[in-house]
Structure formats: structure tokens, C-alpha cells
């Protein structure tokens, strides 16, 4: 500030007052920053930082959403995996041994009936697994989440004519997507036909563990009904031929499990990278808006001293007064 002429009395007071009010403003501004713990008290403080804060905040909120999505999807996959694990155990530990025993041709009708009952129960269990719901939706139905995927149809004699699958096939149009990142999605639905298979006596279609089980049951039924020698031989051969299909079914199920395990792992990796990004963004956000308490405390003290000094200066000037005091 250049002062061209002498200093008038009013000017002296103006200068002192201006100085005091500047110091007071600085002091109050620092107090406001400390109180709000934010460098940005208005969007005009630093517009660029404000826009960055908004973007960073959006990134952080998105990460929360994605992590939540991943948690839900992983739950569903875990549920699906557990189901298939127990199914595999049943196939390997119960169904296949029963089929082996039945194909031996050494058991009597009573024993075979008991095996038949157990296998029929097993088929029910498999269908129940196929009709598992997660969060109110069928998980083995593709996108037909509200349609019961598997139904056992029997004729008047109690013979199984078909086990139908009403879900959608494993085609791209029928996938359920979960967002796990900006524009990235994981497929989480399992088309039940490719996992468990189906059976239709009319068309002769027989796939997967369901087809194997129905054919096994039908063959056992023939044996229990005490047929002719030729029929027994045919049934035993059929049973024997089915044994391999149990193993094929297991590997079919396992391959689906592998596919979901890899989706699960993808999500784990996504989670790790999201966690890392979250740390980075949080620190970026903190840099953008959080105050540096050490720096600001120092500033606060110097502002306070400046304010006190200007007040004491003003009072000194009033005390010193003018020539008037000495006349």
C-alpha cells in the first residue's frame, strides 16, 4: 500500500481497522476449517478440488456397492457349490454303489425293492436340489427364476415318464448379471439342464445325473417285477452300462463347479483390487478435503497472535492519542 500524502487521523484508524478485520477474518476462517474438519467449506473455496471430491466420493460409493454385489453373488455361488458338493457325495457314495450292487444280479427281490426305493428317494433329492431357492429365486433355473425348474412326471402305474426342465438354457440371452466393477459384470445363474440333466421317455432324451438315475430306476423296476430271463439279462446289462454314466454325471457337475469357482475367484480378485482402490481413493479424498491438523494449528496460533497484536496496537494508538494530550 503506497501512501502518497501524509497520514490523516481518519486514515490511521481506517488502516488499523482494516488490518484488524483482515486478521479476524483469517482467524475465523481457520476456526471454521477446524470445526468442520474440511478445507472446503464452500464450492468456491476450490472448485477443482470440489469436482474431484465429488468424483472420488462417487468412486468410493461405487466400490461399496460393488463389494456388496460381490458378497451377495459369492453367497449364491457358495450355496450352489455346497449343494453340488453334497450331490456329488451322494452320487459317489450312495447312488453309484447301489447301481453296482443292483447290477451284480445276486440280490433277491426284497433287497432290490429296497434299493429301488432308495434310488427313487435319491431322485427326489436331486430334483429338490434342482429346485433350490436363494433369496426367493430358483438358482438352477437360468433366468426363469420364478418357474419351478424340475418336475417329475409319472404315468398311472407310477412309472417315471419324464423329468422336465423348465428353466432357460445356458445361452447368453438368459444370463443374470451382477455388476462387480465399472461396466464389468459376472454371470451368476446356473442353467439346471447342463448341471443335472433331464429325462423324457417319449423322445428317449436322457441327460446328466437325472437321466442316469431315471434309467437306473427303470431298470431296477424291471428286475423287481420278476421278469423273464431275457428281460433280466437286458436289465442287468443296462444297469452295468449305466455305471459309467454316474461318473460322467459327476464330472459334468464338477465342471460346472469349476466354472463357478473361477467366477468366485474372479470376484475375489475384483474384491482385492476394489479394496486397494478404496484405500487409494480414501487417501485421495482425505488429501483433497481433510485439514492438516498440525499445519492448521500452527496457522491458527499465528492468526490469533496477529489478531491480538492488531487489537493491542489499536488500543495503544488510542492511548498514545494526539498532540491534544500534551497541550
Amino acid at each position: 500500500m503506497t501512501i502518497s500524502q501524509g497520514i490523516s487521523s481518519q486514515m490511521l484508524y481506517t488502516i488499523l481497522q482494516n488490518g484488524m478485520s483482515t486478521n479476524y477474518n483469517n482467524y475465523a476462517n481457520l476456526l471454521a476449517q477446524i470445526a468442520s474438519n474440511s478445507k472446503l467449506t464452500s464450492i468456491a473455496d476450490d472448485p477443482v478440488a470440489t469436482v474431484n471430491v465429488l468424483k472420488t466420493q462417487k468412486g468410493l460409493d461405487n466400490i461399496d456397492v460393488y463389494l456388496e454385489n460381490i458378497a451377495i453373488a459369492q453367497d449364491e455361488i457358495t450355496e450352489l457349490d455346497d449343494m453340488l458338493d453334497s450331490l456329488n457325495d451322494d452320487i459317489v457314495g450312495t447312488f453309484k454303489p447301489l447301481a453296482v450292487q443292483a447290477s451284480n444280479g445276486v440280490y433277491d427281490t426284497d433287497a432290490l425293492s429296497a434299493m429301488l426305493q432308495e434310488l427313487e428317494g435319491g431322485l427326489e433329492t436331486i430334483v429338490q436340489i434342482g429346485n433350490t431357492k436363494f433369496n426367493g429365486d430358483y438358482i438352477f433355473a437360468g433366468t426363469n427364476v420364478k418357474t419351478t425348474p424340475f418336475t417329475i412326471n409319472k404315468d398311472a402305474d407310477g412309472n417315471i415318464t419324464s423329468v422336465t426342465y423348465s428353466g432357460t438354457p445356458a445361452d447368453g440371452e438368459y444370463q443374470r448379471y451382477v455388476q462387480t466393477g465399472d461396466g464389468t459384470y459376472e454371470v451368476i445363474n446356473a442353467p439346471g439342464d447342463s448341471v443335472l440333466g433331464y429325462y423324457d421317455s417319449a423322445t428317449g432324451e436322457s441327460e446328466g445325473i437325472i437321466g442316469t438315475m431315471v434309467e437306473t430306476i427303470n431298470a431296477l423296476k424291471t428286475l423287481v417285477d420278476q421278469p423273464t430271463e431275457a428281460e433280466v439279462t437286458a436289465a442287468n446289462e443296462a444297469l452295468y452300462g449305466l455305471l459309467d454314466r454316474f461318473d460322467e454325471s459327476v464330472s459334468q457337475i464338477t465342471s460346472v463347479q469349476t466354472k463357478y469357482a473361477s467366477a468366485y475367484n474372479n470376484m475375489e480378485m475384483a474384491k482385492t483390487s476394489l479394496d486397494a482402490t478404496e484405500v487409494n481413493l480414501t487417501s485421495a479424498l482425505s488429501n483433497l478435503k481433510d485439514i492438516d491438523i498440525t499445519e492448521i494449528s500452527t496457522d491458527l496460533y499465528s492468526a490469533m497472535y496477529a489478531y491480538q497484536a492488531s487489537m493491542s496496537l489499536l488500543s495503544q494508538v488510542y492511548q498514545t492519542g494526539t498532540l491534544l494530550n500534551y497541550l
Binding site: 500500500m1 503506497t2 501512501i3 502518497s4 500524502q5 501524509g6 497520514i7 490523516s8 487521523s9 481518519q10 486514515m11 481506517t14 488502516i15 482494516n18 494526539t322 498532540l323 491534544l324 497541550l327
Partner: peptide, 24 residues
Amino acid sequence: VDNLDLQRTSEYSVNLNDELTDLV
């Protein structure tokens, strides 16, 4: 504005010491 105002105040407004000196 403050600077111009101060210059104006400096030129235009009353300095008590000057006035008292004049008075004496």
C-alpha cells in the same frame, strides 16, 4: 478501492495533529 480510498482519506481528511499545530 481501499487503496484509492486511503489515498483520498490521506489527502482529504483531517489530521488532528496538523490541526492542533495550526491551532497553536
